[in-house]
């Protein structure tokens, strides 16, 4: 190479300089074009997001003007008198996601721990693939399964004994008050828990795998138990990744529509019993948008969408804040 280049300079140094400039220029143009394309793609996301926010705002305006702040605190959802309040769907959205996370986070972490540390090699792949397949099942299938199989099973075999068992215990008797409907807040939460499990499990498994073996080996060498190694070595090392997985799962749970619509019972009411029917924001929109007559009704549904948007934004912000705090403390 060097020889060739040397010979060429012999011919004409001037030619080489222009040639090099030409080639470099070409590369530079390529760079600029590539840069602009990637930038445009990234900006496009902002434009779409901005468009969604603006159109949600415009659509929600009539309802927000009519009901003001009371829209957030009123429970009544009455299409006849056109009095709309978002409290019941907001409550339902948050409580179902909360219960789902309460179940799915410990379960998911335990599965991930088992898969990375304790599981025999031959069993790892089947379990791992099964978990990923759970994530691939369309939500309508979960809904249908929930309605036809899971809810009747809960109604006949699970809810009656729970209601009977907690009948005389102060707080639990209101939380698990009958009658057993089969579908309701708890059923929706359980279905959601199954749906978000793969997110928590696969992400946790991947980050657990990334823990340097030497750390764990050192801890085991000191005579720590498996629980201690996981609690004081693996989890602290991976918590940023784990929180990321949990937040992704929470985002999915908050916005899940079809499966919840099937099993939550779609009642615009806040009840203390977890076995009673309720509703969520996305379920309400899915149910009522097609037949909503009148501007105020439609606008109230769009306002619900805006609220869900804000809730999701707050959740993301909290997640960012948590990550930032952890990074600051560690770093």
């Amino acid at each position: 190479m060097a020889d060739v280049a040397w010979q060429e300079t012999d011919v004409s140094a001037q030619d080489v300089v222009t040639e090099r400039a030409r080639v470099l220029n070409k590369l530079r143009i390529g760079d600029i074009v590539f840069h602009q394309i990637t930038k445009a793609s990234a900006l496009f996301v902002l434009v779409v997001l901005g468009g969604v926010i603006v159109s949600l705002f415009i659509g929600a305006m009539p309802a927000l003007q009519e009901f003001g702040f009371g829209f957030l605190t009123a429970q009544s959802w009455n299409p006849v008198t056109e009095k709309f309040g978002a409290l019941a769907p907001i409550y339902g959205t948050i409580i179902t996601s909360f219960i789902a996370m309460l179940i799915a986070v410990p379960f998911g972490l335990m599965i991930a721990m088992f898969l990375t540390e304790l599981c025999p090699m031959w069993l790892r792949r089947p379990i791992g693939i099964a978990i990923e397949l759970l994530a691939g099942i369309p939500s309508i299938i979960y809904g249908i399964w929930g309605l036809f199989v899971f809810a009747p099973f809960l109604q006949t075999h699970v809810q009656p004994p729970i209601i009977a068992a907690f009948e005389n215990i102060p707080v639990l008797s209101t939380l698990f008050a009958g009658p057993p409907f089969g579908i309701g807040i708890l059923t929706a939460s359980l279905i959601l828990a199954i749906m978000v499990l793969p997110f928590i499990t696969s992400i946790s498994r991947d980050v657990f795998d990334a823990v340097p073996p030497v750390l764990k080996e050192a801890a085991y060498g000191l005579g720590w138990t498996q629980w201690e190694v996981w609690r004081y070595v693996v989890l602290p090392y991976t918590r940023i990744g784990v929180i990321g997985g949990v937040m992704l799962a929470l985002g999915r749970a908050l916005g899940e529509t079809m499966a919840v619509t099937f099993v939550i019972g779609n009642a615009h009411k806040i009840t203390t019993s977890l076995l009673a029917p309720g509703t969520t924001i996305s379920a309400t929109i899915a149910n009522e948008f097609t037949e909503a007559v009148g501007d105020l009704y439609t606008s109230s549904l769009i306002a619900l969408g805006l609220i869900l948007f804000v809730i999701t934004f707050i959740v993301l912000a909290i997640a960012r804040y948590l990550l930032l705090r952890i990074e600051r403390r560690v770093g």
């Binding site: 009455n78 006849v80 008198t81 099937f262 019972g265 779609n266 009642a267 037949e291």
Partner: peptide
């Protein structure tokens, strides 16, 4: 309490699509 419409505020029960 409830009235008549294509959708109403149901005083009881579960809703299905």
């Amino acid at each position: 309490k409830v009235g008549a419409n294509t959708s109403v505020e149901w005083p009881a029960g579960i809703g299905a699509k």
